[in-house]
Design a binder for these strands. Structure first.
Lengths: 191, 191
DNA sequence: GTCTATAATGGGATAGAC
DNA sequence: GTCTATCCCATTATAGAC
């Protein structure tokens, strides 16, 4: 495999498991099997690496959302899949999704990284708002409020639930926190 | 003022603004006006300091909840006050409440600190569950689901909303994320 | 209780050979 | 692209004088 890709993979896993401050060039070098000074050839600074990491992640996430949208299913089904993405990312409570991990490490991030992070959050709430607006049409979600409020609440709920589960090193808090949300989604329906 | 108290205050503010890794003995020493080696007289290690900090915080929080309970108001009013605690702690987006800041810095915490943190989360969900159970009696909250699920969802929502707002350095995401929650609470009623 | 002085460690980054 | 060697900095922590 590409050394550059191996470095990105190592960094992403470390950040998701131990946070931005828990990832160091020394650790990555040991992981990949090169010396730490060699990393600077691929990524001049730590901020450069973080920037490319979040860009790669955002692209993957966008494509995951497109895939969800490609299926012509009810809005409730899309929201169920969206919750599943966050639940899967937890890996049983051992890691966060990259965006939550970076949000939690805000104080250590360079400005350009912070900008991309907020862009990521905006893209997420935009997609959620569109989906909740669709739900108001297909009536697949119960107790609907304003779509913008629902979108922000859903993102906060899922990110907060990840944080709780990671603190407890257990999926349980995530499942409890999202149970009420899931129960508002109507049963799957192949329209 | 007590040097010990001044050190705790300085540490708490630093952690809430910049995270657990953004607080150092050097910074505290400058804040308080002593040399950093003198800090070890009051707190042998950084973990000792963190432990005493979270204990102090948990005691303050418990007393705030008792004060909320002391007023014989509807459950919805108590939940509104609870949301207000988290909103006020944000200080316009410049800091988190200590428990969220520590949750976000999980990877750097010593085991005893992590234990207290999870204890704090349990106390919080217990109080919320009792309050949602009361809401099922006084009918002051609309769209009620299972009290345990509501409790975990509310804590995750508030902590996640703080995280979003801190990332954006703005209260706005917090207000949007909690708007739907607030709208479920019936208007104030002096019973 | 506070000071000076000093470990001991680990972090990101650079220069220059190969 | 990767290496060795080195730099510079910040961090927590300790010893011992006052």
């Amino acid at each position: 495999m590409n050394t550059r890709t191996a470095l990105l993979d190592s960094a992403e896993l470390a950040i998701r498991q131990r946070g931005y401050n828990g990832f160091s060039f020394a650790d990555m070098a040991r992981d990949v099997g090169i010396r730490k000074s060699s990393i600077h050839h691929h990524f001049p600074t730590k901020a450069d690496l973080a920037l490319q990491l979040i860009d790669r992640y955002a692209a993957q996430f966008e494509s995951a959302l497109s895939e969800i949208d490609a299926n012509k299913v009810a809005a409730a089904d899309k929201l169920r899949l969206y919750q599943g993405v966050y639940r899967d990312a937890l890996s049983g409570g051992s890691q966060l999704c990259l965006c939550v991990a970076l949000s939690a490490s805000r104080e250590s991030l360079a400005d350009p990284v912070l900008t991309r992070l907020n862009q990521f959050h905006e893209n997420s709430t935009d997609w959620l708002q569109r989906t909740f607006t669709a739900a108001a049409q297909d009536l697949s979600v119960s107790g609907l409020m304003d779509a913008n409020a629902e979108a922000h609440a859903t993102l906060a709920l899922l990110e907060g639930a990840q944080l709780m589960a990671r603190a407890a090193a257990n999926t349980d808090p995530f499942d409890r926190a999202t149970a009420a949300f899931l129960s508002r989604l109507s049963a799957t329906r192949n329209n």
